[in-house]
Every structure is written in C-alpha cells, then in structure tokens.
Design a binder for these strands. Structure first.
Lengths: 156, 156
DNA sequence: AATGAAATAAGATGCAC
DNA sequence: GTGCATCTTATTTCATT
C-alpha cells in the first residue's frame, strides 16, 4: 500500500484488461497495450503494492451453486451509537449470505444484498438478523427477479 | 458449458478458495483441500467449462482510480413492452458507469448501481439516461456513504 | 528512470500407472 | 487419484536507451 504516482494511460489500459480477465498472460497483456512483458509486469506489481489492484478472484455463477436468489434489504435503525454500529458490523461478519452492505444517505440507513437459495432461506436469514441486531426500526426485503447487468469492472 | 454432475464437497472447497484468491497455485490449492495438483486441476477445468466458474478478474479499488461514489438508482417505467426493454438494455450497454442492473419485483422496476467520480458526474449520467430512455415514470438516485461490506465470494 | 533481452525459477498441463 | 515428464509462463538480472 505504498505511495504511488498518479496512474497514466498505460496503467489504466492494463487495469481495463485485468478487470475483464485476470488470467491473461503477461505476454498477452504486454502485446495488447504495446509494451514488453517486463515493464508491464513492473507496473502491475506496483499497482498491487499500492492497493490499486485489490486482488484476483474467481467469479462463480450463483444459480449453478444453488444460490439463484438475490434480495436487497433496506434497514432503518433507531440507534446510531458506536456500540450499535459495532454490533451490527459484527453480525454482518457472521453472515456470509450478506455479500454487500452499504451505509446510505437519506431515510434508509443501510442497504444490503443477500444471496440465498430460496425465499424460505431468506426468511430464515431475516429472523437471524432481527434476533442478532437490536433496535431495528424497519427491515424491508426487496426481491430481485433478474440480473440484467452485473460487472466487477469499473469504468476506468 | 457442458452438462455437469452436482458439485461435491471437494469442488465446493476449491470454489471457496478460488473466490478468495484466484492467484493461488495449483499446488497450494491441492494441499489446502487435500489432493494432488492433477485431479484438482481437472476439477477446476471441468467447472470452468460447465460455466460454474465464470472467469477470473482483478478487483480494483474504486477510490484509487478516482471513482469514490456509488449511487443506487431506482427506476420505474411507464412502458413494459419488449421494444422498451430492448432500448433500455441497449442504453445500459453504452453506459460503463452502470456496474449493476437488477430487474426487481414490487413497485420499483429496476435497481442500478452507478459508479462515478462525484455528484456532478452522477447528474451528467442522470441526464444522459433520461435522454436515452423514453417513458421513465420515476428515477430516484440514492447515494451510498460507505461500503461497509463488499465481496464477490458467494456463501458456498 | 524506464525499457527490452536473455537467463532462471516456478508453475501448469498431459501422460503413464 | 498419484507421480512424473514436459512445456509454458512468471520473475529476476542485467544491459540499453
């Protein structure tokens, strides 16, 4: 996570490729951006150490592993103390079906995305959540019907 | 994308590892799950061909590339014809700042997540969206303050 | 200071058992 | 599923611009 000079156009080109396919060989990346493997490799390593590149992960098809349902959960809390936040975060850590949690501006405090096999599993999750976290004023689950677009690639 | 027998415990263990770090060597994965590299490699290749593993990508820190703001956009349409849907999808394709789009049940038709540098950029996006897509009854942007949790790893 | 060429080390793939 | 041979690719060193 060292300090790092601003990314140039070449760095950005490399990031765009790596965001689409982290399995590309150095030779392929280098050829694509117009460089030889060595400087290309150094740029990638520099961006990894600077934390620009957070990691390389495999993406799995949710339906193919029995998790076809995504539910967005809006949460309003009656308590905004540090203690409550800590308890809420601790609960999230123990719930792997929560794949995203955003603290929001506006009327809703948090927006979660929960990935589950079916509606019954969502209900079970909901009960666990309400049991684990106190002072929940409102919890609203909204069901996704279809993922129309979904990418991990940022518009760089 | 061939047909594939159900995933066994070993397949799932491999997926869990690969979802956390796709850069692990075959030897490391094999040792972790208690196998030798070759069968481990065959399982991975089988899951890739079956589409269980969708790909390997690099994850980039949004703030470090000048994209610190995520906005969730709720969309209600007055038109639900096939023609409208096609036009909407086409518009999404041309908008890389839309990283996610879900078709929802309930009152809201679509929920997007848009990644932008700042509020002004979101406003510019909003104008382009409204100009490109007809029959939008309601478009509400909700700003995320903080990503409390975010993972691409499904609870396998 | 950044790049490129060549040598080395590590790992992935395929085969025989 | 295991162990080994081979072949590709990442990584390092060093010369060059």
């Amino acid at each position: 996570m060292d300090e790092m000079p601003a990314l140039d156009a070449m760095d950005r080109a490399i990031l765009r490729l790596l965001q689409r396919d982290a399995g590309l060989s150095l030779a392929e990346i280098a050829a694509e951006v117009g460089l030889t493997p060595t400087p290309c490799w150094k740029r990638i390593r520099r961006m990894e150490q600077a934390g620009v590149i957070l990691g390389r992960v495999a993406l799995v098809d949710p339906a193919k592993v029995g998790l076809p349902l995504s539910v967005f959960v809006e949460i309003e809390s009656a308590d905004h103390s540090a203690a409550w936040i800590e308890r809420f975060n601790a609960a999230l850590d123990t719930m792997p079906e929560v794949v995203e949690c955003w603290r929001m501006g506006g009327d809703v405090d948090y927006l979660l995305r929960v990935v589950v096999p079916d509606i019954a599993s969502y209900d079970a999750f909901y009960r666990r959540l309400v049991a684990a976290v106190p002072s929940l004023r409102n919890v609203t689950g909204r069901f996704a019907m279809e993922r129309v677009k979904g990418t991990t690639a940022l518009p760089i």
